[in-house]
Design a protein around this nucleic acid. Structure first.
Lengths: 121, 121
DNA sequence: ATAAAGCATGATCATATGCTCATATGTTTA
DNA sequence: TAAACATATGAGCATATGATCATGCTTTAT
């Protein structure tokens, strides 16, 4: 308990602009919201998944087509599709032994467009 | 060389929709572009960095204020600010021994807004 | 000049991540 | 029913990542 108080005192002692910190704190979204947002962007933070999403911008595709497109193992593709599915970014339909994946979100394209806009200076 | 040919043959043999794959390939951005995009989102894929950016939406802040706000080590904050700086998302100005950080991109807010829109179903 | 304060950086470590291999599941065809 | 094909999943491994600790750098104050 003594340690905790020391830390708190040390922290508040080094805050230069208490008013700014307070103001910012009030405008910050909930911790859970910030966490979920980071989790979403984490999904976009991998080249393979970005490629899959871009591919699905153009067309619905089955796993073996995606595998050929990406030049990876079928297993690797399947694992990544699982991640995208869990993030509710893609949906699928089964037709015989094939599974066709497609986009399930209208925001992804806009997010990517804004991201590309940042990249080009 | 024999191995490589085998792989290529095996791949093309499992492509069900060659036309779709070709069409998608043509519409895909450059590999470097896709890589850069993933790198950008990787920066957004961490709660600490998301918090820092949200904080800077509201106000310019110095490192010690951010440290107090986040409840982390000053070192940790400094390391993350470096990442954000390298991604050209924030800029800084020195004033005496203090360093003030602020946003350096108009796209971040839009990207975050779209991300939040996805999260809320 | 020396001490103190604010920030940056290198080293280290524990955890997370993404791929491959092996195998399981499910569907179609012979 | 057995074999072949498309996909999913678990285990294992190598690398990446984010936090802390220790320390260095720069500016201000005494």
């Amino acid at each position: 308990m003594g340690d905790e108080r020391d830390i708190i005192e040390r922290c508040s002692a080094t805050v230069v602009h208490e008013d700014t910190v307070e103001q910012v704190k009030e405008k910050m979204p909930e911790d859970e919201c910030l966490f979920d947002l980071a989790e979403l962007f984490k999904v976009f933070g991998d080249t393979t998944r970005v490629k899959i999403l871009f591919a699905l911008f153009t067309a619905e595709m089955c796993v073996c087509d995606l595998t050929a497109l990406l030049g990876l193992t079928q297993s690797a593709v399947s694992h990544q599709l699982r991640v995208l599915k869990q993030a509710r970014l893609i949906k699928y339909r089964k037709q015989g032994k094939m599974v066709y994946y497609s986009l399930d979100d209208e925001h992804v394209k806009r997010i990517f467009d804004q991201g590309l806009a940042h990249i080009r200076h």
